[in-house]
Structure formats: C-alpha cells, structure tokens
Simulated assay, not measured.
Amino acid sequence: MTSQFDTLPGTYEDFTGTAFRTHLETPSVLTALGDLHGMRVLDLGCGSGVYTRLLKQHGAAHATGLDISAGMIGHARAQEAADPLGVDYLDGTLPDRLAGTFDLVLGVYVLPYATTPAELSDLCVTAATALRPGGRFVTLPIHPGFRPDAVSYARYGFTLTAPEPLADASPVTLNLRFDGHDDTVTARYWTRATLEATLRRTGFTRPRWSDPTVTEQGITAHGTDYWKDYLGHPHTVIAACTKEGGDV
C-alpha cells in the first residue's frame, strides 16, 4: 500500500543528525525506555529504522521494526544489509506468530498518523497484541497541550500548523525544513482524554506523561536560549503505559 512517507526515508535519516534529535528527542526517548538489555522490542511505525537500530545498539536482545510504508521499510532493510546489526524489518501488519512475544513496544510519532478514532484504536491494539502481559508501550503523540501559535519550531528544523480550535483528529501539517530538505506530511492531533481512554480500552494501564528534556551537552553546545521556546511549548510528549495482566 502507498504511504505519504514512501519518498521520505532520506529526510528522516538526515533529521536524526539535527540538534533537536541529538540533544533532546532521542535521549529523552532512551531515558523513558530504560535498560533494554535482554529485551525483545518492537519499533511500531519504525520508518527508516533509526530508532530500531538504536534499540539494538542500546542492548535489546531482539529489535524488530514494523511499518506500512514500503519505501521506509525498503530503506531500513538496505541500511541493515550495509551495516548488519541483527535487526528485523516487517512491512504491513503484525504477524500472528509474533503476538505476545515482545517486552516493549516503542511508537515514535505513530499515533499521530491515525486519522480516525478507529485507526487510533487499531494502532493501540497492535501494540497490545505484540506485548506480553506486563510489557510496556512507550509512545510519542502530538502534545495534548500543543498550541499552533505558541512558538515557532523553525530553528529546530520543522514547523507545525493546524486549524483552531484543536479537536480530536484535527489535521496538523508538519513541514521538515532543514539542510536543504523541504518536505511536508500531515499528522493528527488527539486530546489527552481520547488518548487515555483509547489506551485503557485496548488493555493498557493509565499512561504516565513526561515532556522531553534537553541534555547538558545540548545546553553547552547551543545555549539555554536556543531551547527555551521548545521546552516551554513542546510539540510532543512521552506517554508510557503497561499492558494489563502481568506483575507491574
């Protein structure tokens, strides 16, 4: 099936090298994940495989990437062939054979690409199906407190525009504009109430919410003022929850 991401793997790979990802997003995600050693981890909506490879590099015993974008998966597989880490990539839906086999599911910016409540529920069901009881789901939606006119994110390599007032499934236009790239995709905003209700309904505990933080190296490299706008109005939040039925 075609996807708005099929032509964007190079852009997503290059975005990994920006200050925003290097000093803020990626370390925040890794901190939320904690110790990965010995874990079986699924990168849901893995895109070009950036986080899938990081999961393996940070100790995961098995790391699997899953995405519906053939272009993204093709790029990820090419990366694995050129620099093998022992990462698996799957396109399409989760195979039945993998149900209940993962300790952790990571979904970076996957829930924002559900366009309807049913699609949002389906993504959460996929995460729940993949996990063993007591396994964790860590995901990054658009921040429920996101305000389109609050700040400009342009210095961080992207912009976000959306109609107001925001409501469930409101379209949010993401423009990635950095180092010669200029690409646009459409995401969706979901309220905190809807995200929490959907996660609970699909078998998860109530999520714990945490805003991303910047590293000391990032502050040293770019100064406090550089990060002030983003930290005051982050566009995403980290939601962590646990599949019910295990010892938690």
Rank of each mutant, 00 (worst) to 15 (best):
A197Q: 12
F204H: 10
T215Y: 02
D182P: 03
F204G: 09
T213A: 08
G180W: 14
Y189H: 13
L195F: 06
L199Q: 09
L199N: 04
D211R: 09
D182G: 05
T184F: 08
R192K: 12
I219E: 07
G223R: 04
A197D: 14
Y189T: 14
L195C: 04
A187E: 10
T184N: 08
D183L: 01
R188H: 14
L199P: 03
A193M: 13
E216W: 11
P207S: 15
T215L: 03
G203A: 13
G203C: 14
T220F: 11
F204D: 08
T186D: 06
D225E: 07
D182K: 04
A221N: 01
D179M: 09
H222S: 02
D211A: 14
R200V: 01
T194D: 00
D183T: 11
L195M: 06
V185S: 03
G218A: 13
R200M: 03
Y189E: 14
R206W: 08
E216P: 09
R192A: 13
W209D: 05
W190P: 00
F178Y: 15
R200K: 07
F204K: 07
E216L: 14
D211W: 06
Y189C: 12
R208L: 12
T224D: 00
H222Y: 07
R188T: 02
T202P: 04
T213Q: 11
P212C: 08
R188K: 07
T186K: 11
T184Q: 15
W209P: 00
G180N: 09
H181M: 15
D182V: 05
T205V: 04
T224P: 00
A187Q: 14
T198H: 01
F178E: 11
D211T: 12
G218Y: 11
A193N: 12
T213Y: 08
E196D: 10
T184Y: 07
Y189F: 15
T220S: 15
V214C: 01
R192Q: 10
F204C: 09
A221W: 00
T184L: 09
Y189D: 14
D182M: 06
G218P: 15
H181C: 15
R200H: 09
G203Y: 12
R192W: 09
V214R: 00
S210L: 06
T186F: 07
S210E: 10
D182T: 03
T205M: 04
G223P: 00
G203V: 15
R192M: 08
T184A: 09
D211M: 12
R200C: 02
E216D: 14
S210K: 05
R200D: 03
V214T: 00
I219Q: 08
T202C: 11
R201V: 01
T202I: 06
T213D: 06
D179R: 11
